[in-house]
Design a protein around this nucleic acid. Structure first.
Lengths: 157, 157
DNA sequence: CTTGAGGATGCAAGCGGTTTGCAATTTTCC
DNA sequence: GGAAAATTGCAAACCGCTTGCATCCTCAAG
């Protein structure tokens, strides 16, 4: 389905962090270090683009843990800021490891046919967002933005 | 799918009692003008912000038509370009009448507490989008972008 | 090293939004 | 009016996701 993205297109910011870092964070959050938890983080570390729960589950392979466990873990990991959730509008949430520290906010360009995902590094919307907030009196403002189209490989039926 | 050539269809239609623009378009698309269909379009015409299927259904009131019918109709109306679908990430699709003719592309600022929706008139992303397409070799490119925050009324718990 | 409290998991049931198969009905055209 | 085709209602199913509950595991205190 989704194939690996050419390296030159997006030097992604998933800095390979030592496992101890992650487990450290787990401990800080008073989370127990369990087999499924470690395995999920491992899977996420090995992929550069956001994965669905199903993809995570099949990536876990022989460690065939329950879907409910993955769902629950994605929530807790998200709550801890270890993982970032994306919604491409196809009904399945996708997750990737949060880039280290900085808010690492970024967006995606998604092929509507093969689901290939290109990561876009920069988000230029912050000042526009602030302006919007001021104009309409909103606070705690955030945004979702994704691009869709046919990738080069999918343009010939 | 295939639309008849505008010149060669239903010549009598033009001199009949004035039908709404919408029913006009239904005929052009070879869609039958049914009670539920008209009622749904009526509801959408009376609301300025996108409605969920449920909201449409309750707005239909005494004409208590089946949810499946609404779902099916939203698909066909969307395919005809009469209706626009939005996804605010809360699991329920929302629909509004397509702005007349021009692509009428626009975005929303959604209160995450009371779901109040502010429509933003302009979209400044088109040239950026084209640039993206060129850079990554994508075609048929489009985007989704929504803003979220707390509206003025929801800022004091 | 043992132990136990509370977190985490597996299982199964359930939920909300959406889709679909099919028979019955409605719209439209003649 | 009557036939063909589109549309509807109904019920069941689907999909992603959540939850209740009994059991299991982790980890720190002893």
């Amino acid at each position: 389905m989704s194939r690996p993205c050419p390296q030159h297109q997006h030097p992604h910011r998933l800095i390979q962090q030592p496992l101890s870092d992650l487990t450290d964070k787990l401990r800080q959050g008073e989370l127990k270090i369990t087999i499924p938890r470690q395995a999920i983080l491992d899977v996420l570390r090995k992929h550069s683009s956001p994965l669905t729960i199903k993809e995570i589950h099949t990536s876990l392979g022989k460690l065939d843990c329950d879907l409910a466990t993955i769902y629950r873990n994605m929530h807790t990991l998200e709550r801890m800021g270890l993982v970032r959730r994306y919604d491409f509008g196809d009904g399945a949430a996708r997750f990737e490891l949060s880039p280290e520290e900085g808010d690492g906010h970024h967006h995606h360009l998604v092929c509507t046919r093969c689901a290939r995902i290109v990561e876009l590094d920069d988000c230029f919307l912050n000042e526009f967002q602030d302006q919007l907030a001021r104009r309409h009196g909103f606070t705690q403002i955030s945004h979702r933005m994704e691009f869709f189209g046919l990738c080069p490989n999918c343009q010939v039926p």
